[in-house]
Lab assay of single mutants.
Amino acid sequence: CHSECLGNCSQPDDPTKCVACRNFYLDGRCVETCPPPYYHFQDWRCVNFSFCQDLHHKCKNSRRQGCHQYVIHNNKCIPECPSGYTMNSSNLLCTPCLGPCPKVCHLLEGEKTIDSVTSAQELRGCTVINGSLIINIRGGNNLAAELEANLGLIEEISGYLKIRRSYALVSLSFFRKLRLIRGETLEIGNYSFYALDNQNLRQLWDWSKHNLTITQGKLFFHYNPKLCLSEIHKMEEVSGTKGRQERNDIALKTNGDQASCENELLKFSYIRTSFDKILLRWEPYWPPDFRDLLGFMLFYKEAPYQNVTEFDGQDACGSNSWTVVDIDPPLRSNDPKSQNHPGWLMRGLKPWTQYAIFVKTLVTFSDERRTYGAKSDIIYVQTDATNPSVPLDPISVSNSSSQIILKWKPPSDPNGNITHYLVFWERQAEDSELFELDYCLKGLKLPSRTWSPPFESEDSQKHNQSEYEDSAGECCSCPKTDSQILKELEESSFRKTFEDYLHNVVFVPRKT
């Protein structure tokens, strides 16, 4: 048989008469490798580009789960590009990614509803959504962080984005990388972005840091009482949809009607710091009717980097990364020049730590249904340095008659930039024990000054392991946590139920 035959053949030295091919099969003959313009397919066939392209389009058009959109890589027609490569849609070739590779997620039936953290986790790592997304989240724990972890990498949506009755959302900033909504599939009414009845939605994105392009379709905003109209108009300008909307697409009466839409800028007039305090004062603000001013709200939190936005980490279910302080308005003076500047002394802060701070007014709604208010920009203030805590785990070892090696770990709280350490030492008198000992005694162990690591005695271990207080009263049991108490109650309830079950099964009433 021919060298490319495997198993047997019907005619000697003829690659077209093989029972099976050793390498690849091409047009009725066995070959060692697939010549151009053919590609290896499933490690035994040679196919042309049209064959591989037909497989790709067949799966793409069917949208069946589990099928493969075949691509070409290293002269092979394979189910998908290997790690580190992405497909070129024009020629199906796998090309190296520039940075992290995109991950295209194809949605069944063309859309997916995100109504819980669990459903959001199914899209973790996706960068391109081939379909439409509907966000409908009523509640949950730590929602802002969970949504950002699972949806934060999405850069492109081919269909539309719909935010509907998501009472738990305060902001859409968890879509931190969303840059493009194509609108290839539109919501009824030709809408590519749809926001309806979101009672706590206050911000779409921080438009000073976020760009969003909507290729096709219109915007729809109705019944978002805490979303200011200025935020919607800003989205029109940034996304390129200005002029597409009709009169009733953006409701003037049901958007922002319960919001404090600040239209003035508060400026800080005085800032002073110490290692654990920050004193702030800002310019006074009074609405047209000074009785509408209820006070100020001061927001602050630790910020290692200057990239904080107002609604980071917030949701309507209680999660809030900001510390909020309510401040009463100052006494009002008739003389504008003698107006008191409101302020606040922030206490209990960490030394040498940068804080993000902003302040906003708290006002009631005027009778004319106009909203007044003022808010400052987010500023960054760093507390002063102070003395560091003591170095940890000092170790001293003498390696000769004239040297001592000293080692330690950095302090747990540096409280500033540590530039150097101060080492103090003092000579001590020799131990009298060394002169009084009889060095001729056998088995004498000389006193040693070398360091030995501390260890816990058996008594201390027994005390720590004991669940009861000892007789001397030195140790006591740790208080039980809520989960331990709940577990004990469940076990007790189970024992009672099981005992009742045994009584009912074992003891049967005697027939009379």
Rank of each mutant, 00 (worst) to 15 (best):
F290P: 05
E231Y: 06
F296T: 02
Q245R: 10
K267F: 09
R138I: 06
N248W: 08
L252F: 06
L331G: 14
G125A: 13
L204S: 06
R202Q: 02
A144F: 15
I250L: 08
A251F: 12
G189T: 08
N198A: 04
N211C: 08
L161Y: 02
V359R: 00
Y223L: 10
P342E: 13
H341A: 13
D393K: 07
I181R: 00
S239C: 10
E368M: 05
L151N: 01
G240S: 06
F311N: 09
I379K: 15
S401R: 15
K112Q: 11
Q258I: 09
D276G: 14
R370V: 06
G348Y: 02
P288H: 09
G240T: 04
G131D: 01
E236Q: 07
E246M: 09
Q354A: 14
G295F: 12
P342A: 13
G243M: 11
S319Y: 09
E155F: 13
D367L: 14
F174L: 08
N263I: 13
I405S: 15
N255A: 07
N255L: 10
F296A: 08
A316S: 08
L161P: 01
Q216I: 04
C228E: 02
V117T: 04
E155I: 09
S119V: 08
V359S: 05
G131P: 01
W286K: 11
A303F: 14
I395L: 14
R165E: 01
T273K: 15
T383A: 02
E187S: 03
P410E: 02
E155N: 12
I114S: 00
L219W: 11
S333W: 11
I327F: 13
G373H: 03
H341W: 13
N387M: 15
Y285S: 10
T185R: 13
W286F: 15
E236P: 04
Y300A: 11
T309A: 06
I154M: 13
L298Y: 03
I135M: 07
T364K: 00
K162A: 05
L331Y: 05
N200G: 06
N248L: 13
A120S: 11
D393I: 15
S400D: 14
G159L: 00
K112L: 13
F221N: 00
S260Q: 08
D312C: 01
C317R: 02
L107M: 07
D257C: 03
A145M: 15
V397Q: 13
V381M: 10
L392C: 12
D384Q: 04
V170P: 05
D315G: 05
P288E: 13
E237N: 10
K162F: 08
D335A: 15
T386M: 10
A120V: 06
V397L: 15
D197N: 07
K177V: 09
R370Y: 08
D315V: 10
